[in-house]
């Protein structure tokens, strides 16, 4: 069938634009550009409580992302959460006594794992487990504790007043 050359050119331009847009979405808008894809070494941490941590949550050192949470499981014997993370192989010099904690970025932000490097000579290897962990702060608990202590204070001042 006959179609004009200019039509073919426009169609080519259109397809190029469309595929370009897909690339833009993949690279600029989403996380394809940041390392991913399974390569990297595996570390495991056990927490009493992981709060709102999810699979794919970031793992950071000094605020720089070096990996992601790859799996979350529950150990029914120790009643602990088992968090598995994948760390970018470039960052392979984490000391063996590094501690892991769960923090929240901002008041409403997502939760992430922050690593605090220790001073050991040896480095963490694939499959190693963190020795020191700090669980997530659950907002209800904090508020509960805060109210509880406030109530305590009030009681104390009341008692002082009455005396």
């Amino acid at each position: 069938m006959h179609y004009s050359k200019s039509h073919a050119t426009w169609v080519g331009f259109f397809v190029f634009l469309g595929i370009g847009a897909l690339f833009f979405l993949a690279l600029q808008v989403s996380n394809l550009s940041s390392f991913d894809h399974g390569d990297g070494y595996r570390l495991v941490a056990r927490f009493e409580n992981i709060g709102g941590l999810k699979v794919r949550s970031p793992v950071t050192v000094s605020g720089v992302r070096i990996g992601r949470v790859s799996a979350i499981d529950y150990d029914k014997k120790t009643y602990q959460a088992v968090v598995e993370m994948k760390i970018n192989p470039t960052y392979d010099t984490l000391p063996a006594d590094t501690s892991a904690g769960i923090y929240t970025s901002g008041l409403l932000g997502e939760q992430y794992i922050g690593l605090e490097p220790g001073g050991a000579e040896e480095y963490l290897q694939n499959g190693d487990q963190f020795e020191y962990t700090q669980s997530a702060l659950v907002l209800e608990e904090i508020i509960g504790q805060f109210l509880f202590s406030k109530a305590d204070e009030l009681k104390k001042t009341d008692e002082a007043d009455s005396q």
């Binding site: 993949a26 600029q28 808008v29 989403s30 996380n31 394809l32 794919r56 992302r65 997502e110």
Partner: peptide
């Protein structure tokens, strides 16, 4: 944006 959007889940 890049931290929150996932290639597989979103795009």
């Amino acid at each position: 944006m890049q931290a929150s959007l996932d290639v597989r889940e979103d795009i």
